[in-house]
């Protein structure tokens, strides 16, 4: 059962150099209760995808469904009330909190906007409760963001996103600005919240080892396109798309006996005027003439979806 689904979603930006095709024809789905990991290198459009799905930026074309309902053209009051059910946690907790608002204000706003509480007492109880869940204390309510550490700020961001008991949360690199020991705490909290509230996550990250540890399914993006999507364990055990394969080989493992190869040469091409045909073809070790000509569709193969001419 899909909670979130996109159909041929596109998001283009105009820049001085030309049209940036940040998200280029992506059809992706998040199943209820799962964590979908989305990985890719910088410029692959993973962040833009997350924001477009939440309608924080307007899609250029394509459709977005939430809980079976087309929300592509929803706006104004209707969209605002839907925000109770979906939310986002950003990478940089420093910039994600209003420096002029206390933690109390940050938690207060969502609860008030969506009429989540009847009395001031119930509200406080709720706030303190969720802060405790996040490993923070009631005394943090009166703190301003600059009085908190990076990890504490991110916990406030997550508490804010979770206090509405949403169905869907986009986690955009939620731990990459944090130290590893803090990261593991945040991940545990997220995992606990997921089971407690039955939230579905879309976990966007460039840290492949991390995504491996937490996602049920995995989507790999390259230059605005989804190149492979399927069961996380399957893909990690046996990546099929040449980009996925090369990407995984580039990831250093915390094991001194395993050394990375550097199978990908050259740079990621610019998303301004991406190559015709398969975007990965210029760097692909196994590209054929057809790859430079035609753009491969996402097709079913090996129990997953792959966009590569080799698996036709």
């Amino acid at each position: 059962m899909n909670l979130v689904e996109t159909e041929n979603l596109k998001k283009f930006f105009d820049s001085k150099k030309g049209t940036v095709k940040a998200v280029n024809d992506v059809s992706i789905n998040v199943i209820k209760g799962e964590t979908l990991g989305v990985v890719g290198e910088s410029g692959c459009g993973k962040t833009t995808l997350g924001r477009t799905i939440l309608k924080l930026i307007k899609p250029t074309s394509g459709k977005i469904y939430f809980d079976g309902k087309d929300i592509t053209n929803l706006d104004g009051e209707d969209m605002r009330s839907l925000r109770k059910k979906m939310n986002i946690v950003f990478q940089d907790p420093v910039s994600a909190l209003n420096p002029q608002m206390t933690v109390y204000d940050h938690l207060n706003r969502p609860l008030v906007i969506h009429n989540m509480v009847d009395s001031e007492e119930e509200k406080l109880r709720r706030m303190v409760d969720i802060l405790n869940t996040m490993g923070l204390k009631a005394e943090h309510l009166i703190r301003y963001p600059h009085e908190l550490s990076g990890g504490q700020k991110q916990r406030v961001c997550i508490a804010r996103a979770l206090c509405l008991e949403p169905d869907f949360l986009v986690l955009d690199e939620p731990t990459s600005a944090l130290d590893v020991s803090v990261q593991s705490k945040i991940l545990k909290l997220l995992d606990r919240a997921k089971r407690k509230f039955k939230v579905s996550y879309m976990f966007i990250s460039h840290n492949i080892n991390l995504v491996r540890a937490i996602s049920d399914r995995l989507g790999v993006m390259y230059l605005g396109k989804l190149v492979e999507i399927g069961d996380s364990t399957d893909i990690f055990n046996e990546p099929k798309h040449p980009y996925t394969q090369a990407l995984f080989k580039s990831v250093p493992q915390p094991d001194p006996d395993e050394k990375v190869e550097a199978p990908l040469t050259g740079q990621v091409p610019s998303p301004v005027n991406p190559p015709e045909g398969c975007a990965f073809a210029p760097r692909c070790p196994r590209s054929q003439s057809v790859c430079e000509r035609d753009n491969p569709d996402l097709i079913e193969a090996y129990g997953r979806k792959i966009a590569c001419h080799r698996y036709k």
Partner: peptide, 23 residues
């Protein structure tokens, strides 16, 4: 990000101006 994050919790445009930009 806190502007975008305000939008994400469903703040209205007027509120964003008054509560987030102005202070």
């Amino acid at each position: 990000m806190f502007i975008e994050s305000a939008e994400a919790i469903g703040e209205s445009k007027t509120h964003i101006v008054l509560r987030y930009f102005l202070p």
